[in-house]
């Protein structure tokens, strides 16, 4: 695949640099940028795609919701990043009935773009107290698990994707495949 420019938006998550590393090791041009970077400056970087990292709380999500609404490029939200996308489009987030820590067995509902070749089940690693409790209107559920009903989702038309688990950590199965699928979306967008 051609080299794409992928920005990792830092939401203060402990795994943020692992996203950077995975993207870099897959031969993409990447850097970590603060989530307070103004929208125009993000556009000026000419990214082919954004990845929202995880983080401690929605309040520390910076301008992610604006990026999700205003930018016309593919975005992958991870953990808090997934919740920020949901929040931006009118979904609900809140404490799950059971926090997701360490191994979580995820059932792929719809392979769509980013979960292509990942189904029917994958073993993932998660670390979250909150989750997306209600899909934003029109969004499509892509995956679920025993402890969390909305493990992955996508926008009905725009290339916006969210996953609750952490594809960037070593203990998640097929994490790199998920990133490659996302890069494919980025490479083909607007072509």
């Amino acid at each position: 695949m051609e080299e794409l420019r992928i920005l990792v938006i830092n939401n203060h998550g402990q795994f943020c640099h692992l996203i950077h590393r995975t993207v870099r090791d897959l031969d993409m041009d990447t850097s970590i940028v603060p989530n307070t970077t103004p929208v125009e400056e993000v556009i000026a970087e000419k990214p082919d795609g954004l990845i929202f990292s995880g983080g401690p709380s929605l309040e520390r999500g910076g301008l992610c919701e604006e990026y999700a609404k205003e930018l016309d490029i593919p975005i992958l939200g991870i953990c808090l990043g997934h919740q920020l996308i949901a929040h931006a489009y009118g979904g609900s987030t809140g404490a799950g009935s059971h926090g997701g820590y360490a191994a979580v067995d995820v059932e792929v509902v719809e392979e769509d773009d980013i979960l292509k070749r990942l189904g029917p089940r994958i073993s993932t690693w998660a670390s979250h107290g909150d989750e997306v409790t209600e899909l934003p209107p029109g969004f499509v559920k892509l995956a679920r698990s025993e402890i969390c009903a909305i493990e992955a989702m996508k926008h009905p038309d725009k290339p916006l994707y969210g996953v609750q688990w952490h594809p960037e950590v070593a203990h998640t199965d097929k994490g790199e495949e998920l990133f490659r699928n996302f890069f494919e979306v980025c490479a083909n967008y607007n072509k």
């Binding site: 830092n10 203060h12 402990q14 943020c16 983080g55």
Partner: peptide, 12 residues
Amino acid sequence: IYPDKIESDGGI
């Protein structure tokens, strides 16, 4: 090293 810079930022 690289992760030190990022991790200190997260407050863990």
